[in-house]
Simulated scan of single mutants.
Amino acid sequence: MLFESERFQGRLTKPVSWSDHVFRYSEFTGINTEGGDVDSVFVSCKIENCEWYWGLFNLEIFVAVDFNKCIFRGTAFSGSKFVDCSFNNCEFLKDNLGASCSFDDVVWYGCTQNNCTGLNE
């Protein structure tokens, strides 16, 4: 399902989820997610003050997405693609069992980061 120019604050409500959707020109603010898969497509979106704990980003596609002040704890990014994305003041932290975020088979094209923790150049 396509969601265009939508604003999501605090939570996602059905039928919206992080899975099997396309988000274009949308904004996500203050959403905290524990577990679950994220396998949607995000184009020209803003994601701010959102937190993921044990998130599974599988084959995710992000194009021209601005991540601001997001926190990822023990999150796995597997086969994801990031194109022209920016990461500002984001944190990629260990979970409560000491596991770091993982980036298996992730592809980065033209992305930038500023003042991020746990995200290597």
Rank of each mutant, 00 (worst) to 15 (best):
1 M>Y: 14
4 E>L: 11
4 E>V: 14
5 S>P: 14
14 K>C: 10
15 P>C: 03
16 V>Q: 07
16 V>D: 08
18 W>L: 12
19 S>C: 00
20 D>G: 03
20 D>M: 10
21 H>I: 12
23 F>T: 04
23 F>P: 01
24 R>P: 04
24 R>H: 04
27 E>W: 06
28 F>E: 00
30 G>A: 14
31 I>L: 02
31 I>Y: 01
33 T>H: 08
35 G>S: 13
36 G>E: 01
40 S>D: 00
40 S>K: 01
43 V>D: 02
43 V>N: 04
44 S>Q: 14
53 Y>D: 11
53 Y>L: 05
54 W>L: 15
54 W>D: 07
54 W>V: 11
56 L>V: 02
59 L>K: 00
59 L>I: 08
61 I>V: 15
65 V>G: 02
71 I>M: 07
72 F>M: 06
81 K>E: 15
81 K>T: 15
83 V>Y: 01
83 V>W: 13
84 D>W: 15
88 N>S: 00
90 C>V: 10
91 E>T: 00
92 F>C: 01
95 D>R: 03
95 D>C: 11
100 S>D: 07
100 S>R: 09
102 S>H: 09
102 S>R: 14
104 D>E: 11
105 D>E: 05
109 Y>S: 03
110 G>M: 00
114 N>R: 00
118 G>Y: 10
121 E>Q: 12
